[in-house]
Simulated scan of single mutants.
Amino acid sequence: MRGSVSSTPTPPSSTTPAITFDRVTVTYGRGRSASEALSDFSLRVAPGETVALLGPSGSGKSTALKALAGFVRPSSGRVRLGDRDITDLPPARRGIGVVVQSYALFPHLRVRDNVAFGLRAHRVARSEIGDRVTDALSMVSMSAYADRLPRELSGGQQQRVAIARALAIRPGVLLLDEPLAALDAALRQSMLTELQQLRAALPDTAMLYVTHDQSEALALADRVAVMRDAHLVDLDTADALWARPPSTFTAAFLGGANLVPCTVGRVSGTSALVSVGDRMLSVTAPPRRVGAPDWAPGTSAMVCIRPHEITVAATSGHGSIRARVTATVWQGSTTRVTLAVDGLPDVLLDADLPGRTEHDIDSAVWVTIAPGTGVLVSTNGAP
Rank of each mutant, 00 (worst) to 15 (best):
S6R: 09
S13P: 05
S13R: 11
I19R: 01
T20H: 02
F21L: 02
V24I: 07
S35C: 06
G48S: 11
G48I: 00
G48V: 05
A69I: 04
L81A: 10
R84P: 03
I86G: 09
P90R: 12
I96Q: 03
G97E: 02
Y103C: 09
P107C: 10
R110G: 08
V111A: 10
V111K: 03
V111T: 15
D113F: 07
A125W: 02
E128C: 07
G130S: 14
R132W: 04
T134Q: 12
S138R: 14
S138A: 15
V140M: 11
A144H: 15
A146V: 12
R151S: 15
R151T: 08
Q157I: 10
Q159T: 03
A162V: 05
A164G: 07
A168Y: 00
R170V: 01
L174K: 01
L174Y: 00
E178Q: 10
P179Q: 04
L183M: 11
D184S: 09
D184G: 11
L187M: 15
S190V: 04
L192P: 04
L192H: 04
A201D: 10
L202T: 10
P203F: 07
H212F: 09
E216C: 13
A219E: 08
D222K: 04
V226M: 12
V226K: 01
D229Y: 01
A257F: 00
V260G: 07
P261I: 02
P261E: 11
C262A: 14
V264A: 02
V267F: 08
G269S: 11
L273D: 11
S282K: 10
R289F: 08
G291L: 10
W295C: 03
G298T: 00
T299V: 00
C304R: 04
I305H: 01
P307C: 06
P307K: 04
T311D: 14
T315G: 12
R324M: 15
V325I: 14
T328C: 14
T328R: 06
T328F: 00
G332L: 09
V341N: 08
D346T: 12
L348N: 13
D350I: 00
E358F: 12
W366L: 11
A370N: 13
G372N: 07
S378Q: 02
N380F: 05
